[in-house]
Amino acid sequence: MEFCYILLAMIAGACAPVQAGINSQLRLWTDDPIVAATISFAVGTLGLLGYVFVLKIPWPPFSTAGSLPWWQWTGGFLGAFLVVITIILAPRMGAATMIGFLIAGQMLVSLVLDHFGLIGYEIRPASLVRIIGAALLIVGVVLIRKF
């Protein structure tokens, strides 16, 4: 089962540079990264709504929405920021360098989230080996960018 999770993560990861390239091309038509990201999110939202309605997935009661902590509403903003930034950076950096630096940033923040068990993550201490792994990833990105 773990292999399936790894495979799904790799497939989702493979979508990131493809999505950035597609959205960068959409930017050429819209002449604005924010408009291109808005169109991308609108298409994604329509796809998700269709999925929810076709499978008849029940919505949670809206009356309980006010009881959620404020930060649980920020995921969409973070996703929008990520998409806009990839639209801007993809043509300037290239797919490999851009995704490499995105993954490096994800790895560094992930180590902190795991180490302290923040926002619902189980505590997984940032051991020396994990830190070295993250550092090697950053070295790899620098090599990709340089050569």
Rank of each mutant, 00 (worst) to 15 (best):
F3L: 11
I6V: 15
L7T: 07
L7A: 13
L7I: 05
A9I: 03
M10E: 10
I11N: 07
G13M: 07
C15V: 13
C15N: 08
C15L: 15
Q19F: 04
Q19I: 10
I22F: 14
I22M: 06
S24W: 00
L26P: 00
L26D: 00
L26I: 00
W29E: 10
D31P: 01
D32L: 08
A37Y: 12
S40W: 01
S40K: 00
S40L: 02
F41G: 09
G44S: 11
G44T: 09
T45L: 14
L49F: 15
G50V: 08
F53W: 15
V54Q: 09
K56T: 10
K56M: 09
I57V: 12
P61K: 10
S63D: 14
T64E: 11
A65Y: 15
G66E: 05
S67H: 13
S67R: 11
Q72C: 07
W73I: 02
G75L: 09
A80K: 03
L82N: 10
L82W: 03
V83N: 07
V84P: 11
I85D: 06
I88S: 09
A90E: 15
A90H: 15
A90L: 10
R92I: 05
A95P: 05
A96G: 14
A96L: 14
I99R: 02
I99Y: 01
F101N: 02
L102T: 14
A104E: 07
M107N: 02
L108C: 07
L108K: 02
V109R: 03
S110T: 12
V112W: 01
H115G: 01
G117V: 00
G117N: 02
L118W: 15
Y121D: 06
Y121L: 13
R124D: 04
R124T: 04
S127V: 05
L128M: 13
V129I: 09
I131K: 02
L137T: 10
I138G: 04
V139C: 14
G140C: 01
V141T: 13
R145V: 09
F147A: 11
